[in-house]
Design a protein around this nucleic acid. Structure first.
Lengths: 121, 121
DNA sequence: CTGGACTGTTTACAATCGTAGTCATGAAGT
DNA sequence: ACTTCATGACTACGATTGTAAACAGTCCAG
């Protein structure tokens, strides 16, 4: 279902690795900046597992975790939910809002235009 | 700080009214579709009040609630947070994702292009 | 004046979240 | 064989969330 902020951090770690990771692996990659204890990471992995967001295969003593859902599809769902919730399903008001706050860089704008151009063909 | 989903519902009601509303007013406008009891609405109003997201003026017995933050600024903050969290602060990947899911209508696309064109001038 | 009707306040309670300690168990070194 | 270390499982605990009942004070209708 819903993945919490802290859980998302773990998901990102798993998504960014092409190989399954052990709890310790994840902790090493995250713990650095987040300052989480190994146990905290394990809790996240358990909860994500319970939510079917990740799977694991047992390798002897330990588990090798990997994402059960693709980042793209998760991000797609959340994006849809976000624009539905705050912008009535339309993306343009979001663009307008960010534009007004100067949150768009030149490259970003150019990239968006390319995507839209592509779309219309 | 953070406004929860249920609380947001109440905020939307207040934002959409040009006049301050009483708890009962809000309940009437929301209760319909959400099926909330009056007490639930009151709880939301209290919590939002504690979070300084709304204010009230006492009108005799009851309170007249109004938003303490503008929708635009709230939506701006959340949007920034969202693209930061899932797209590294760039909007184009979000556009790409929604485009891939056919979540963009013709008008929406046209509107976005207008906004971007405006931006470059 | 007395009993509703209304209003905000307090309390409740299960679920989720962030963060982490403890425990049991098995592996591995000595 | 015994100690040590690593690992998943269980437990903890305060904060937030969703949802709401109970309560206390006040105002209006008899």
């Amino acid at each position: 279902m819903r993945i919490s902020d802290a859980e998302l951090e773990v998901m990102e770690t798993l998504w960014s690795s092409d190989e399954p990771l052990t709890a310790t692996d994840v902790a090493e990659r995250i713990g650095a900046d987040r300052g989480w204890s190994l146990t905290t990471v394990k809790t996240m992995l358990s909860r994500l597992s319970a939510k079917k967001a990740i799977t694991y295969s047992e390798e002897g003593r330990r588990y090798l975790y990997s994402p059960a859902i693709a980042r793209d599809s998760y991000v797609g769902r959340e994006s849809r939910r976000f624009v539905d919730q705050l912008f009535g399903g339309r993306l343009s008001p979001l663009v307008a809002r960010l534009a007004e706050e100067d949150a768009l860089t030149e490259e970003d704008i150019a990239a968006i235009e390319r995507i839209l151009k592509e779309l219309k063909s």
